[in-house]
Simulated assay, not measured.
Amino acid sequence: MVQLDTARAANVKLVSGQSVTAVFVGATTGIGEYTLRGLADTAKVNGGSGLRIYLVGRNQVAADSILGDCRKLCPEGVFVFVKAGNLALVQDVDKACREVQRLENKRGGEGAGTAKVDMLVMTQGVLQFGSRQETTEGLDTSMSLLYYSRMRFLTQLLPLLRASTLATGARCISVYAGGFEVKKQFYPDDFSLRKPEHFSFAQVRSQVTYMKTLFFENLARENKGKLACVHIYPGLVITPSFYSKSHPWWFKMAWACVAPVAKFFATSAEDIGQRVLFLATDKYAARAGTADTVPKDLAMSSDRVRGGGAYSVKVDGETNDVSAAYADFDRKEMVERVWDHTMEVFRDAESVK
């Protein structure tokens, strides 16, 4: 377990003496908001000098409140809200990415430093029960928010991420279910879970976790020294999503019974913010060019390479060994299949009128 004090100290080091540009997606509430606030609170040691944050989301009122608080903490920082449409739609993701690129390139062109993104933190998602709920692009809303939307942000912002000035590479951090691959709950012949018998809440969680791990491993190998990708299981964090009016009656009743006890075991908003921010520090570095240059204190990647650049992480900062979940198929071949499938989905979504 990585001690919280260790994580906090590493986070202070991250924001001290260097500029940091971060993009937060879906951070107008929940863990994304807590991490954004954690970054601002950590950066207040130098007034936020060199800090730039783009908050991508739909809720203007919530964003104004969050960023207003951050400006008080870090008067020298730059905090920008990028209003998005439906983040489950690839085309709306593209619009948001174009706006981030425009704003960042404009700042670079005005002499504000290199146009770059050092951190991409994604928490968009929805607790969805029951059958598929398809978007206008033909994707299930939940699967899109947890996988396709996130991978689209990552690939569209890749040029800016590759321009990061962090010594150990930029970070893509996806908060959801790192380590939740379940054997016999992966359908390579039905990646998008279009068959009704394949679709369920648990199956979606396992399916997107498999796909994300494999997609991340490919990007880590293709972007050595430039990019590390991390997905984390945050444990129990009591966010406003638990109290959504759209939940089925049985969930509301179950949560009403469990909530009074659950709060004693949950990770606090402040602590999870620091835990997620810690994933951007040197321990989870981009993949190195040669094995003999890898420090011994780097984390073990999901493909069992120390400092391998793709990480599946528990809430305490330790990595998951997910090897057994991938033992039944050719991993290299599956990486290629997941990549090809994802690119095909993106092309199909682009063509929707």
Rank of each mutant, 00 (worst) to 15 (best):
M334I: 12
R171C: 02
L120F: 13
S149C: 11
A84C: 11
A324Q: 15
I53G: 01
T239M: 04
T42A: 05
K13V: 10
Q185C: 08
S174N: 13
G26Y: 02
E181W: 04
M122S: 05
F153P: 00
E350H: 07
I238P: 12
G130Q: 14
R71G: 05
V61H: 04
F251P: 08
G68T: 05
K226F: 05
A266T: 10
V237L: 06
D94G: 00
G130E: 12
A84M: 06
T290D: 12
L279A: 10
A202R: 05
Y147V: 12
H231T: 08
Q203M: 07
Q133K: 13
F242Y: 15
Y147D: 09
A280E: 05
V20E: 03
K224A: 12
C257K: 03
G38Y: 01
N46Q: 08
Q60A: 13
I173G: 00
Y284N: 04
K116I: 03
D321N: 15
C229M: 15
G130D: 09
K263W: 10
T213G: 02
S149Q: 03
I238Q: 09
Q203K: 08
P196K: 07
T209I: 05
L227H: 06
K195T: 09
A266N: 09
Y176E: 15
A27D: 02
L73T: 06
V25D: 00
G308E: 09
V315K: 10
I66H: 08
G77R: 03
Q207F: 08
L193I: 08
T136K: 04
D303M: 14
V345P: 03
G235V: 14
K212G: 12
G273Q: 03
V93W: 00
M119K: 10
R337T: 05
V313I: 11
K296W: 06
S131C: 01
Y176S: 10
G273T: 11
L36Y: 05
Y284V: 00
Q18M: 03
T290W: 07
G273W: 00
